[in-house]
């Protein structure tokens, strides 16, 4: 177990190193941030001073080495645009995105698993077919369009919910979050639904497929042959087995929800990391881009680790020690 985690962490360091190298080269190839950051009518001297201040007067390898040196000290550089530490900028936005992602993921689990279970147990029923047809819509309608339609319907026509922004946060046990105030929740609902729709469809289809596959297996029939009630056969024998693929996929999807949040955050003016990264890319604000990606990579690594551990808990046949990291 410990060996497993250490091996994972070493791999992560490697991933971060490769990723930062790519981002440095990538941003360099796209263009020179100086052109965007410094006004057209600045003097030559002002220009040179600005370039020196941003550290852009050095060669790319030199810049990269300097970055690595600071990285070891925990310093990810200062934003070209805001003049604030890049990591701090990203982390400030981190809770907003996590709120959205957790809320969306919860929705897709608590809606998707029961619906998928139903559709898997009664595939021929009208409700079962309706669920599957519905999930195709969730899959195929473009995310941004779904978002706009949600705004049209619930914010503009019905005026039930606000169209965008994050609202006032509440405080509970010293934690500040949208979950703890009605205004916060009302701002959270639409973007969370928007983000959840695709994932819900995915969870429905995955659950249904796993149920269809499991339900015909001998051990389920044997459980019934013991005289168990359907609730126990489904709730324990089937569910515990389909949890194995579900946890894996949901875990991995959680990472992609955070990445997908970019579109939703833009549509709903949600002040999260996604919006920050879009703005930063437009302005070639390299330190922020790098900081964002490092945070995301760390997040993915943590999620994968948690998934692997859960996997080993759920499936007694898996042992972490034997697993190739």
């Amino acid at each position: 177990m410990t060996v497993f985690i250490i091996r994972r962490l070493l791999q992560s360091v490697l991933v971060v190193a490769v990723m930062t190298l790519l981002v440095f080269a990538g941003v360099y190839a796209i263009g020179n941030p100086v052109e965007i950051l410094i006004s057209q009518d600045a003097t030559e001297a002002e220009r040179a001073a600005a370039i020196a201040r941003l550290g852009l007067d050095k060669s790319l390898p030199e810049q990269y080495l300097a970055f690595l040196g600071n990285l070891v000290k925990g310093d990810l550089g200062t934003s070209f645009v805001f003049g604030e530490p890049a990591l701090q900028l990203v982390l400030q936005r981190f809770p907003a995105t996590m709120e959205l992602a957790i809320c969306a993921m919860m929705m897709s689990i608590f809606i998707g698993v029961p619906l998928g279970l139903y559709a898997g147990l009664r595939p021929e029923s009208i409700a079962g077919r309706t669920i599957m047809t519905g999930s195709i819509f969730g899959f195929s309608l473009p995310n941004f369009w779904q978002g706009l339609m949600l705004i049209m319907l619930f914010a503009v026509i019905l005026q039930w919910l606000p169209a965008g922004g994050r609202g006032v946060r509440g405080e509970f046990l010293g934690i500040e979050s949208s979950f703890f105030s009605w205004d916060g929740i009302s701002h959270l609902i639409l973007p969370a639904i928007n983000l959840a729709l695709f994932k819900t469809s995915l969870v429905i289809r995955l659950t249904r497929a796993s149920v269809r596959e499991t339900i015909n297996l001998d051990y389920v029939k044997f459980a019934r042959a013991k005289g168990l009630r359907p609730r126990r056969v489904i709730g324990l024998h089937v569910l515990k087995n389909i949890m194995i693929p579900l946890v894996t996929i949901i875990g991995l999807e959680f990472g992609s929800v955070i990445a997908f949040a970019v579109v939703t955050e833009t549509v709903f003016a949600w002040p999260g990391m996604g919006k920050l990264i879009i703005d930063s890319i437009f302005q070639l604000d390299r330190p922020v881009i790098v900081a964002y990606l490092i945070v995301i990579v760390c997040l993915f690594i943590t999620i994968n680790l948690v998934v692997d551990i859960l996997y080993a808990i759920l499936d007694p046949r898996v042992r972490l020690a034997d697993q190739k990291a």
């Binding site: 001998d218 051990y219 389920v220 024998h237 515990k240 087995n241 046949r317």
Partner: peptide, 11 residues
Amino acid sequence: FQDPMMTLNPV
């Protein structure tokens, strides 16, 4: 049942 490998729930 016929197949002992499949009769017991693996988890």
